[in-house]
Design a protein around this nucleic acid. Structure first.
Lengths: 234, 234
DNA sequence: TGTATGCAATATGTATACAATATAAGGCAG
DNA sequence: CTGCCTTATATTGTATACATATTGCATACA
């Protein structure tokens, strides 16, 4: 199909932005991307326009497209707004979910579980993204969905390290997140709105802690490096 | 300036959609619009892409752009979601408003007041749109703003009759809305978040009633037309 | 008469060439 | 040597021509 080239390109760029392969603020060169995906600049520019509409990039007149930044102001808004959006999306998902969507959610969760068990952190992050995206679809609320999608972009970018746990305690958190997904599916299936909202807020609290640490990591040890290590340095 | 042609076109189409000159569901022909605005199809397509990103139109592959519809599902979501978004935007506006924005808001309100006094309903609706749009800017919350803007599109479209009052009682409602704007400005200026939220919810309740009547108008009188009128018909 | 099929007309999608704008380098004056 | 202006280069914006897809109509057949 000739039209799939554009959507393929769209997916590829989205993926690169979510995985931080294209870091926040990076420039997207039309000519270069056009060559990369084997299409002329005209359709590629339309892809960038679409990505701008979805909140993945910012386009400035005569300056091209840049991956949306993750500055202080954004972070602040992010942590401030996420519970509001997530909780209300969850509530609406209970009301409006369809059976095909429920099935898609279960499949997505299977993929997610698989990725976490294989310690495939990149895949886990992407499947987690998809999981919450489907819950957004379930809400069937065309006003909240744009907000949710923008939140998910930054959520996924911020949580890139979440599924790459460094300690057993952190592995336990990932397992807990996975269990919460299962419980959320059950709540949505049974239309238990209050339960779903509650779970969503717990789920948020879990990842919030980890994300804030990604932004503001633990300080390095104050002691100087040991003599041996210093010897090998540079 | 050469670049302003595109933004001019953008504004024109936005205005036509908000004023229902382009009714929901209507088709946007690229070639026709291109000729109308004196530009080729390439930049015009980019305008349509941008409008799609803002929620004014829907673009379907190989089928072009249509003005977003106002169907049942949308309405339901609209009335369900508006208080949530408006209230939180108002709260954030109190926290984050800048002085230039405050000034812009006051000017916008002057224009609004003028339009209502002149019974210029079209202008009133547009200035009301701008007023709430500025409050959105004040929130400085990049996650909620897309939701707000989508709400405002439909709010403005639904309220086209609001400022065209048919009775003295309805004129009083418009005056009350205008007063609420003044009070909202004061609350935002003085950072009284709770007051602003409260006013916003009252403001919403006021227009909600009128809008629902626009959607579901009072039934026509059951009695047949009088003989005299019948004689003149067709 | 109803339906299916193929063709024509129209509209959208893409490629390429050219124009305008921004960025960076280099030269000149102070 | 520094600051600014000029010019060269790279990148984005626009127009046009062509390719492809959809839609409607006409015609043929059941």
């Amino acid at each position: 199909m000739t039209t799939s080239r554009k959507s393929q390109c769209l997916d590829a760029i989205r993926h690169q932005i979510l995985s931080l392969a294209l870091p926040p603020g990076s420039d997207l060169d039309e000519a270069k991307l056009g060559a990369e995906f084997g299409m002329s600049r005209t359709p590629l520019r339309e892809v960038l326009q679409k990505l701008a509409g979805e909140g993945f990039v910012n386009i400035t007149q005569n300056k091209g497209a840049k991956v949306v930044s993750m500055d202080m102001a954004m972070m602040r808004s992010f942590f401030q707004t996420a519970p509001l959006i997530y909780a209300n999306i969850a509530r609406l998902a209970c009301e409006n979910r369809s059976l095909p969507q429920l099935k898609a959610l279960k499949i997505s969760q299977q993929h997610f579980k698989m990725a976490t068990r294989n310690n495939d952190s990149a895949q886990a992050a992407m499947h987690n993204h998809q999981f919450h995206h489907i819950i957004g679809d379930m809400s069937q609320n065309c006003y909240l969905i744009p907000s949710l999608q923008r939140m998910l972009i930054d959520h996924t970018r911020l949580s890139q390290t979440f599924y790459r746990p460094a300690s057993p305690a952190e592995s336990a958190l990932v397992r807990q997140a996975c269990e919460q997904h299962d419980q959320m599916i059950a709540a949505i299936e049974n239309r238990h709105a209050e339960v779903a909202v509650d779970l969503t807020l717990q789920h948020w609290a879990l990842s919030q802690d980890r994300m804030e640490r990604f932004v503001r990591p633990d300080p390095l040890p104050v002691e100087l490096a040991s003599p041996k290590e210093t010897a090998n340095a540079i």
